[in-house]
Simulated scan of single mutants.
Amino acid sequence: MTTPSPTRSNHRLTRAIAHLEHLAPAWFALVMGWCGLSLAWLRAADVLGETALGLGLVAALFALFVFVLLCICCVVRLMVHPDAVAADMRHPVRHAFMATLPLSIMLLAGIGVSLFWNTSRTLDTLLTFAWVLGSVLEIAATVWVLARWLNTADAGGLQWATFTPVFFIPVIGNVLAPMAGVTVGLEAWATAQFGVGLLLWPVLQTMLLVRMVQAGPLPARMSPTIFITVVAPSIVGLCFLQLDAPLSLAWGSWGIGLFCLALSLTQIHTIFEQAFGLPHWGMSFPMAAFTTLTLRMSQAHGGAWLQLPATLLLAVTSLLILGLTLGTWRGLRHGQLLVPEK
């Protein structure tokens, strides 16, 4: 067996660093997808037992691994390709993905709270700090994204042609707050942040419908992102339950999520026609979020009929995220992903 020469190794490293120029913040969608899958399996532990708990832990560890790897790559990218980072922040669509970083932090902290809260005072402090960091950064990202809309179109303001479900991402981070914020003892702050998301969600939903009328359907390559509309009602329903709101509000949220999912599925043919790319990860976290809410509602009063559909949803979501992960691995190996946008 031959040992790679130092020259060849250096060449590979140089090529890898060069490819990081195209590592857009949308890559944190992988972390969100695996975190969502972890939350779904952890919720299923009430029904499926220790096996589901173990799978949820495995999914969480993989999400953490991907998060750390992406953070390292982003730091290198910022140092080597600062112009590319600045271009992402100016881009009319990609800038909204900046909110995926704090959202990933909140999700990972929330999973940690679900698994390890009250096992160690030091760990509780670390998890609380991580959640607060993600929460504050999420608020900052939300203000920054929406502040751009106050500019004129020439100065990077909102344009109907560039408005996509991607702009729901900052909203999702805010409505997510009570899921872990209540447990760590910051219910007042978490509920206030939840209110911000609850204000913006119907506004953005209305704007998306107006965009469809004004500028026509989404570009075909962005068609998977229509699934993002499923996330807000799914997370809102889970948070209503966390905040001990009337069960009817959770059922209403589940109904809205189901409607958004059915509407998204009408685009499945268009989605399958597209070459694999990062936009396909737009289906992962929404499916996981709706699966988690469905599992939770199957245990609520009057929800026993959802047990079989919830289990089927869990299987479909798991296969989807595994398929997306394999597709991403193949795309990286064949040099099809870290490339300039067409």
Rank of each mutant, 00 (worst) to 15 (best):
M1R: 07
T2W: 05
P4A: 03
S5F: 01
S5G: 07
P6H: 11
N10P: 11
H19V: 11
W27Y: 15
F28N: 09
V31A: 01
V31P: 07
C35D: 11
A40M: 07
W41H: 05
R43F: 09
A44P: 06
L48I: 04
L48T: 01
T51L: 14
T51K: 13
T51E: 06
V58Y: 12
V58I: 15
A60S: 11
L61V: 12
L64E: 04
L64Y: 08
F65C: 14
L69Y: 13
I72Y: 12
C73D: 09
V76S: 08
M79Y: 14
V80K: 08
H81K: 06
A87D: 14
P92Y: 10
P92M: 02
T100D: 07
T100N: 07
T100P: 02
M106Q: 14
L108T: 04
A109Q: 01
I111A: 03
F116M: 10
S120I: 09
T122F: 07
D124L: 02
T125K: 14
A130M: 10
W131T: 01
W131R: 11
L133H: 03
G134Q: 09
T142N: 09
W144C: 09
W144Y: 13
A147E: 07
G157M: 08
Q159G: 09
W160F: 09
A161Q: 14
T162Q: 12
F163N: 01
F163T: 05
F163H: 11
P170T: 04
G173F: 04
G173W: 02
V175K: 08
L186C: 08
L198E: 01
L200F: 07
V203F: 13
Q205C: 05
Q205W: 10
V210R: 11
A215K: 00
P217D: 04
L218S: 00
R221T: 02
R221G: 00
M222N: 10
G237E: 03
G237H: 00
G237C: 00
Q242N: 03
D244T: 01
A245K: 10
P246Y: 02
W251R: 03
G252V: 02
G252C: 00
G252M: 06
G255P: 05
F259N: 08
T266M: 14
Q267A: 13
H269S: 12
P279T: 10
M283V: 05
S284Q: 00
P286A: 09
F290D: 03
T291C: 14
T291F: 12
T292F: 00
L293R: 10
S298Y: 00
G303V: 10
A304C: 05
W305E: 10
L308K: 13
L314E: 12
S318W: 08
L319A: 15
L319R: 08
L322S: 06
L322F: 08
G323N: 06
L324D: 01
G327S: 05
T328Y: 02
R330G: 03
H334F: 00
H334T: 13
P340R: 07
